[in-house]
Nucleic acid binder design. Structure first.
Lengths: 243, 243
DNA sequence: CACGGTGAAAAGTATATACATGTATGTATA
DNA sequence: TATACATACATGTATATACTTTTCACCGTG
């Protein structure tokens, strides 16, 4: 029977520490397989639920991998995935020390097209909010922002003054985002877009398509068009939080 | 008694969804206080441990704040930064079930231009590796990849066969990346690019500029050009790992 | 040898129960 | 009036138990 330290911290934390220490010192490093829950129960003298909680939290934190029916293993060092951060354009502009202004072209309630109903994953056709806003950086239009908003999650969207609060800020304030989908592509500007952004028809634009979820419900669908010559999405990122 | 959806997901997940939805729709938004565990037990007809697990996980994910003896509250909205994951193009193509092939156009050692010396943050001018590769998805060229590589970190870059190993894979294997910088923009294809990607001069392309660091040293500089009509960067992301 | 069944072992989920600990509030007493 | 105590209620932790789901190894049969 192994003794856990006699500190004030809760038992499952002690178990977590015990496991992390054993991983760190390589005691289980051989085939990278940990003792089973029941073995830990026997060797540590705590209940299975407590061991389970410790293992579950370490798994959520990325230290372990668990396979039902097989066992618990030390996770391989994190596979590299490089990330890009997409920020609130209003905040970005202000952060660069420039002036942000927006112009509301459309703010209305519409019946969604069949496509939109599908994108929203609606069971039936219900009215949604629709807004089109142009964002300016120092009086130069840089982004055309079209949004479709689920009224069941954000009820008063159509009554806001988006020349004062950015649409993004309002949405973030109103509903928690649990999931985000992004698609970035490059497209030539159509007549409408060109007019609003003050660029030539056919010139290159960045198109950022975004869907956000709150729980299982699609909250917003956005089409953000950036004048390619005036804007780029940038980020600097430390994969493993080394800072 | 409230009915939870009759899906396959475990009960605590349904409870989490139920709570997130109620937060999203603002049903509890008034004083931002949630029903107590015991109230949820009564209204949902599940055990307290199950409710507790749901609440604990949502708290860990940053949606809730809990105070012992007081109650559970909706957390203030986080400063949201949405992330896009940029993957290895070869792996992405294979994952879609398509065939990946690459053609090496250039693989050489060069003296860097003054601009590159600055980008690499070199103190003096030293030779670097330079490669240009076209990546094909089912024999359709989708990405033109130009890389400049720091030889002090990746010594044998110029001796590799990049029709077999993707440049990305080789680099990731050779040196740990501690930091990544990305800039995405939309540009018209120049003559050279158009020729390699088999598209018209002036048609829209996604340009992804990337620098990677190993410690304080710039390891690679890449210029990835995607045919705008054939490729888009996509991602789906859960801000706080709620899944 | 190939195939399928069967059971053991592992993690996953759900519940009932108990007690611990922290907070707010109301009440009795000095 | 002010302090101390009792109490109710909130979340936090720990256990015992039971059942489910998945995987794997073993074994017998064709």
């Amino acid at each position: 029977m192994i003794d856990l330290p006699d500190t004030a911290s809760p038992l499952y934390e002690k178990v977590k520490d015990y496991i992390l220490t054993n991983i760190g010192t390589g005691r289980w490093g051989k085939d990278r397989k940990l003792p089973s829950e029941n073995e830990l129960v026997a060797s540590l003298g705590v209940s299975r639920m407590t061991v389970h909680r410790a293992l579950r939290e370490l798994t959520a934190a990325g230290f372990l991998i668990r396979l039902q029916g097989v066992g618990t293993f030390i996770a391989p060092p994190r596979p590299q995935s490089t990330l890009i951060e997409i920020n609130n354009i209003a905040a970005e502009i202000v952060e660069r020390g420039n002036r942000h202004r927006s112009e509301v072209l459309v703010l209305e309630t519409i019946m969604p097209t069949k496509e939109l109903v599908l994108s929203f994953e609606f069971a039936k056709r219900v009215p949604i909010y629709h807004s089109v806003v142009v964002n300016f950086e120092n009086d130069l239009p840089v982004q055309l922002e079209e949004r479709f908003v689920n009224p069941s999650l954000i009820p008063d969207y159509d009554k806001q003054d988006f020349t004062r609060t950015a649409t993004y800020d309002y949405l973030m304030q109103k509903t928690p985002v649990t999931e985000v989908e992004h698609i970035i592509s490059a497209i030539p500007a159509d007549k409408e877009t060109a007019r609003h952004l003050g660029i030539d028809v056919g010139s290159c634009c960045l198109l950022l398509h975004r869907r956000t979820w709150t729980g299982a419900v699609v909250a917003t669908i956005s089409k953000l068009t950036y004048a390619g010559s005036r804007y780029s999405l940038g980020s600097r990122y430390s994969p493993s939080g080394t800072n």
